[in-house]
Amino acid sequence: MKTLLPTRSFDDVNVGDELPELVIELTPTVIVSTAIASRDYQDVHHDRDLAQKKGSKDIFMNILSSNGFVGRYITDWTGPNAVLRSVKIRLGAPNYSYDTMRMTGVVESKEMVDGEGRVEIKIRGANQLGDHVKGTIDLVLPTDGAAP
């Protein structure tokens, strides 16, 4: 039988803890497959000719996918039993095809609320133009002694 990997415990997380960097190579395949997986068929996310005609230098990532990478970045670090309560992101420089996005994050605060271990994480995803995304994520982590 397979066993679910452990989840980082609220008790083991400290304010100021840094998440390991996640590097996303923004290949055309990444830009297009994420746009289509989110059912966003706006041409600037899959058609370079049209994107350039509209003034962009290439196709670029849609906002739904930026959300998706933020969610992945968080739970890659926490493990499977973190429960996301909110994700708030602000977009900056576009994630153009052939760029690289480097995601970093830090634990901003932690607090027990109503018996839950609530943690706030700030993240940023930067490419060579600047910050593509900055965000704040509120989530609940298991506490020691709590199952599982």
């Binding site: 497959s33 994420t34 996918s65 992945r72 739970t75 890659d76």
Partner: peptide, 10 residues
């Protein structure tokens, strides 16, 4: 489709 594209293996 989403998890494949995002690379999310949770």
């Amino acid at each position: 489709h989403w998890c494949d594209a995002i690379g999310d293996t949770n």
